[in-house]
């Protein structure tokens, strides 16, 4: 099932890996994990794998298999992982039984915190501090989701094929968060924030505009025309990335 497979890739590589960003920008999340010294491995049978290292109050996400995780969580299928993300199934712990209570009690507090920011209601979005974290997380999800969709989703692959090579910088002005998406030799990666000499730049006038757009609250064409969102450089890169981003709600909506 392509749908489940793509969704699992997005869940792991775009959503769960965002815990790294969450811990870095939300005090409450940082407080939750400050004493965690644990490496969690998530693996889907014949599917994607991701690990999260919690150490010294920081979280670092890594793709693939960690050499010595403390806990290994195994999923029989992409669907199994997706059901876990929806709170409807549990993983199979293959290692780290002594940490079961951590898994059932502590870790969910962090994922709940992520969900709190990623699935906001109107009242929360009215708060500037909340809005900022929501924007940072959404940008992170979008950047990694673009990479996954460009490689694992059949429609996404078609859209991405027409994307020229180079680096697209996406930034929130005046000094908000930034991500970049790199296409090189036909491969896609998430690059560093505010890259030098990008081939294309898409910028949001401020955090409010970025947030409205990412939460589907305004018309992107009108925002472009008014200069709330601006683009320059290789526009086909931005067009392709926008088409890919449009597919995110199909999987994570």
């Amino acid at each position: 099932m392509e749908y489940q497979r793509v969704k699992a890739n997005l869940n792991l590589h775009a959503v769960l890996r965002n815990l790294e960003t969450l811990v870095a920008c939300d005090d409450k999340a940082a407080e939750l994990i400050k004493s965690w010294e644990v490496t969690l491995q998530f693996s889907v049978l014949r599917g994607p794998a991701l690990y999260l290292e919690f150490q010294n109050g920081r979280c670092r996400a890594g793709e693939g298999v960690h050499h010595a995780p403390d806990v290994r969580l195994f999923f029989l299928s992409a669907r199994h992982l997706n059901r876990m993300m929806d709170g409807k199934a549990s993983p199979i712990p293959l290692k780290g039984f002594t940490r079961l209570s951590f898994l059932t009690k502590e870790f969910p507090k962090l994922t709940d915190r992520l969900e709190y920011f990623l699935k906001p209601d109107e009242a929360l979005l009215a708060d500037d501090a909340f809005c900022e974290i929501n924007t940072r997380l959404n940008l992170g999800v979008a950047a990694y989701a673009v990479r996954e969709l460009a490689t694992t989703d059949s429609m996404g692959r078609l859209n991405a094929a027409s994307m020229p090579e180079g680096t697209l910088s996406i930034r929130v002005l005046p000094n908000g968060p930034s991500v970049s998406i790199v296409k090189e030799n036909g491969g896609y990666a998430v690059g560093k924030p505010n890259p030098e000499n990008p081939m294309a730049v898409m910028s949001f006038r401020d955090m409010g505009v970025a947030n409205d757009l990412m939460n589907g609250k305004c018309d992107a064409f009108a925002a472009l025309a008014k200069g709330d969102v601006s683009m320059k450089g290789k526009i086909p890169m931005i067009e392709a990335v926008n088409l890919l981003m449009d597919r995110i709600p199909h999987y994570l909506g």
Binding site: L224, A225, G227, M231
Partner: peptide, 14 residues
């Protein structure tokens, strides 16, 4: 606002 090919969004910068 102005849809389609006359959209100001295609002009850089609008």
């Amino acid at each position: 606002g102005v849809p389609g090919h006359m959209s100001p969004a295609v002009n850089i910068p609008p």
